[in-house]
């Protein structure tokens, strides 16, 4: 059951990721990215990361991608005219990417020490309680720093998006 779920959602994630870079219309790309995020949320659940799965949906799919969609709709971005860069990229890029993926697969599968196998429900340390304990004790300072970062980002976005730019 675990293997079936993993294969289905991994295939969906890879197909959506390919859709993101192969489709020419930005809206199609954005929806493909939402597909990747949704399937990754399911994979997080299989890994016992309940809170991260929910945060993935709330933050990524529910907020960041809505912003992307909003901007695409607002600018009425159409199809890209020449989506691919120089032909060199098209001819060399594909083999390079495949080579790098092969290298990663080799590294992961043959050089790492043996790892656990995932069965659903085996690890339950990713619930909201555990995350909260870790964030507000061990990682309190980074957490506060990110809140300052968010504040700066809000101010920066407001300044950039103002009507008149002097």
């Amino acid at each position: 059951m675990d293997l079936i779920l993993f294969i289905v959602f991994a295939m969906f994630a890879v197909a959506s990721a390919l859709g993101l870079i192969l489709q020419t219309h930005p809206i199609n790309s954005a929806l493909s990215l939402i597909g990747v995020m949704g399937s990754l949320a399911v994979l997080y659940l299989l890994l016992g990361a309940e809170f991260i799965a929910a945060a993935q949906l709330v933050v990524y799919a529910g907020a960041i991608m809505v912003l992307f969609l909003f901007v695409i709709m607002l600018l009425n971005a159409g199809e890209e005219r020449n989506p691919w860069k120089a032909p060199v990229v098209a001819y060399i890029g594909g083999p390079v990417v495949i080579f790098l993926i092969g290298a990663f697969v080799y590294l992961i599968n043959f050089t790492l020490p043996p790892m656990r196998s995932v069965s659903f429900g085996d690890f339950t340390g990713g619930g909201p309680r555990e995350i909260g304990m870790a964030i507000f004790t061990k990682y309190l300072l980074p957490f506060e720093v990110t809140s300052v970062l968010i504040l700066i980002a809000i101010v920066g976005a407001m300044v950039l998006a103002r009507k008149e730019i002097d």
Partner: peptide, 25 residues
């Protein structure tokens, strides 16, 4: 009966905007 029930509701309701925004576009 899941541990992140209310988070799931928030997540789904934040996804709900896609139906309307996509329809409009």
């Amino acid at each position: 009966d899941i541990n992140i029930g209310i988070l799931l509701i928030l997540a789904v309701s934040s996804l709900g905007v896609y139906g309307i925004a996509l329809a409009g576009w």
